[in-house]
């Protein structure tokens, strides 16, 4: 199985502070890889270099063998990368369905029209996606009034709209109730495996990480200190040290 996402020798420094140093890992189709680490370990920086928000100082990010290092978020999305945000980012004044349609229109290159009515096309496709994430019954509500957990689902539906090969989920369950968290990640995992999507996610909730991830990469102070199957990582003394607090 070839890797969908391949990261090598990623470096980023902010004014002399090395936020990410020589990070490397890979994610395969249908695989869920969790990127974990304590606060300030460099997870977000790392993430933002993958999705195009930040340009790395050095290193290579490849998507299915193609170098995407330093590309804009837009270009990366066009190559088949979906993403969800740590703090949900949806279009609050648009309905749930319109949010998803927005992503679908964009994927289909239909946004440039000035005179056609938005929302008439791609409706069934939008509803199908909403059905997958269990939001079809709320399709007509504006996103601005949704509960936080529901917003996360809408985001997931939007992230799936361009039939991505890679899904980047930054803290997908942050701000949710514990029971909802596992449910959401289970949903994401199910969809990913069924559609052979590679998933990279960061997460604070260890229950979620260890129950859902196929593999785990642990960052500390910008470096990868461990990686492997959940059981291996759990047993790793360095990881225990970091998470039990003696690592600081």
């Amino acid at each position: 199985m070839t890797a969908v996402l391949q990261v090598d020798g990623l470096h980023k420094a902010f004014g002399g502070v090395r936020a990410v140093e020589d990070v490397a890992f890979a994610v395969s189709a249908g695989e869920l890889l969790a990127l974990i680490g304590p606060n300030g370990a460099g997870k977000s920086t790392c993430f933002n270099m993958l999705n195009g928000q930040l340009e790395p100082d050095s290193g290579v990010v490849e998507l299915e063998g193609r170098d995407i290092t330093g590309m804009s978020p837009r270009a990366i999305w066009r190559l088949g990368v979906g993403r969800t945000f740590q703090i949900t980012a949806t279009f609050a004044s648009l309905s749930v369905r319109e949010n998803v349609q927005m992503a679908l229109y964009s994927h289909a290159g239909k946004l440039r029209s000035l005179l056609s009515r938005f929302g008439t096309a791609l409706r069934t496709e939008a509803d199908a996606l909403l059905d997958q994430v269990g939001m079809l019954d709320q399709a007509d509500r504006p996103c601005g009034v949704l509960a936080y957990g529901d917003l996360k689902r809408v985001e997931l539906a939007m992230a799936l709209a361009n039939q991505p090969r890679l899904l980047l989920m930054d803290e997908p369950t942050a701000g949710m109730a514990p029971r909802e968290r596992v449910a959401l990640m289970e949903l994401a995992a199910r969809l990913a495996r069924a559609q052979k999507i590679a998933v990279l996610f960061t997460e604070h909730d260890m229950d979620v990480v260890f129950s859902q991830a196929d593999r785990i990469v642990v960052l500390d102070r910008g470096r990868v200190i461990a990686g492997g199957l959940p059981a291996e990582v759990r047993a790793n003394p360095d990881v225990q040290a970091v998470y039990l607090g003696s690592g600081h």
Partner: peptide, 19 residues
């Protein structure tokens, strides 16, 4: 139109629009 929806979407969340 789709164009107008993009404007509203961009006002609501530029981050998501880019994404």
């Amino acid at each position: 139109s789709p164009f107008g929806y993009v404007l509203r979407a961009g006002r609501d969340s530029p981050l998501r629009a880019e994404a």
